[in-house]
Design a binder for these strands. Structure first.
Lengths: 152, 152
DNA sequence: CGCCATTTAGTCGTGCGCAACTTATTAGTG
DNA sequence: CACTAATAAGTTGCGCACGACTAAATGGCG
């Protein structure tokens, strides 16, 4: 893939459309918006869906583990998990070994939801309309960017 | 750039780390977090900064124009613009030609802030640590993705 | 002209996302 | 062992983001 630079590439431009950050911000919201109708049918928001992805991979994780996986603070996760618990998808219980920690476990309902969610990544993949290579390149660049920007 | 696919590339994976959407979500928040201390000094949040970028390009735009440029709803912009007005950076006045429309104009303070903001894109560019080509490729892919996903 | 559909901002309610802080528990040090 | 530092989860306050809705103004059509 070649960079077809139809861009005024001066280093410190203040033009909105020169900013990678804006492309990122717009893309992220556009993708989330595309997820919304699909996730509505599952009764999930997008961040809730991400939490469920983690739990479907590995049941019984701590709030801390979720925070590490999703890069979210407990101040974001705690209320979100409460809502998922209220919807009957998971249970929260203090660990006996360490009373500070809370184990998040799927309920039967939560575990079963996985089957209904299987179609979601496929539908989104279609909508994104990237080739396999573009998808891989994008992921790679986004991870590099995240790593660089998260330093110190 | 080659796609070094150390990925389990099955089409409909439910693994968090296979999802482009998560890479996007994480990158967007990481970049915004990197902006935060810089923008704090200007007294701006990240979305407020984006609004200012538009206004520094073209003074006197409508709420609708801002919404088109930033892909945001009036329900997001109206309160945000009120806060910027309260901080003395802009004024909102109904247009005489069309009383439905509101013209957003920079105050002297708002216009002057541009000079202090000049260092921001440079600092962020450094922190991102992408080559020119990676930056261009990322922007290109993100725009393609946004366009595809926004269809219909 | 009169009327209705459209357009433009705006309000309201809900759910993030994060900084700053609190509380409870555990670990580590002398 | 005592005591302090750390860790884990949660609360609060604020600012987005967006859907659903409202009010006011304009455009278009008969």
């Amino acid at each position: 893939m070649t960079a077809t630079g139809a861009e005024p590439r001066q280093e410190g431009s203040l033009l909105l459309d020169d900013q990678l950050c804006f492309a990122l911000y717009a893309a992220s919201r556009a993708v989330t918006a595309r997820y919304r109708p699909l996730l509505d049918e599952l009764g999930l928001t997008y961040p809730q869906y991400l939490v469920m992805l983690v739990l479907w991979e590995q049941d019984s994780v701590s709030v801390r583990d979720l925070g590490t996986a999703l890069q979210l603070e407990s101040s974001t996760l705690s209320p979100l998990l409460k809502r998922l618990e209220a919807h009957g998808l998971l249970r929260r219980e203090r660990r006996a070994e360490d009373e500070r920690s809370v184990a998040i476990r799927l309920t039967e309902t939560g575990a079963r939801l996985r089957e209904r969610a299987r179609t979601v990544p496929v539908a989104i993949g279609d909508a994104m309309g990237l080739t396999r290579e573009q998808d891989a390149t994008a992921k790679q660049l986004l991870r590099l960017l995240t790593a660089n920007v998260s330093e110190d």
